[in-house]
Amino acid sequence: MVYLLLAVAIVGEVVATVSLKLSDGFTKPWPLVAVVVGYLVAFTSLGFVLKLGMPIGVAYAIWCAFGIAAVAAVGVVLFKEPVNLTMVGGLVLVVLGVVAIELGSASAG
């Protein structure tokens, strides 16, 4: 259940962040609504994840890393933003860092 809620938090954050771009400086109302609803879903879900006992460092690391990777992928696919091998390597390192935090948290507890 905790990982499902964390996935919901990640999706909410990605929707909200992508909608920031689509809102064109908060001039378009529907993307602005998606920003507010997306962040509301993201932070509410993340709050429940923490309430269910996931350590804050682990939860936040997973939330951030997968959010970063997903937003970067959406930027490349939807907005045709450039990507190169160095950027991909950076994203891989972010995800590997989260895996290290998760493994370290499991062995510390």
Rank of each mutant, 00 (worst) to 15 (best):
M87G: 12
S45N: 11
E102I: 07
V41Q: 06
F79Y: 14
L5Y: 15
I101P: 05
T86G: 05
W30C: 00
W30Q: 03
G67I: 14
G53F: 15
L20D: 01
V8M: 14
S105D: 09
L93D: 02
G25I: 09
E81R: 08
G12V: 04
A7E: 01
A73G: 04
V94F: 04
A42V: 02
G57F: 15
W63K: 01
L6S: 06
F48Q: 11
V83Q: 13
P55F: 03
I62A: 12
A72F: 08
I62G: 02
P29Q: 07
F26D: 04
K21L: 09
F66Q: 07
A65G: 10
L5A: 05
F26H: 05
E81F: 00
K21F: 09
A100P: 09
V77Q: 08
K80N: 01
L40Q: 03
G75H: 07
W30L: 15
V49P: 08
V83A: 01
K28T: 11
A59D: 02
Y60Q: 01
F26C: 00
S105H: 15
G75P: 01
L6Y: 12
Y60T: 05
G47E: 00
L4E: 06
D24G: 04
A59T: 10
G57P: 03
V33P: 05
Y60I: 09
G97H: 06
I101W: 01
G53R: 13
G67P: 01
M54Y: 13
V33F: 12
G75R: 10
W63I: 06
P31I: 08
A61G: 12
P31Y: 00
L52Q: 14
W30S: 14
V8H: 10
I56T: 02
V49Y: 14
F43I: 07
E102C: 08
L20P: 02
L4N: 03
F79T: 03
I101Y: 06
L6P: 03
Y3L: 09
V99N: 10
V99R: 03
T86W: 11
V83W: 06
L50G: 05
I62C: 07
L50F: 12
E13N: 09
V99F: 12
I62D: 10
E102A: 11
V15F: 10
V92E: 08
V76Y: 15
V98W: 05
A16C: 13
G38Q: 02
W63S: 00
Y60S: 06
W63Q: 10
V88D: 03
A65F: 04
L91G: 13
M87W: 13
L40G: 09
L46Y: 15
T27G: 14
G47S: 14
T17A: 15
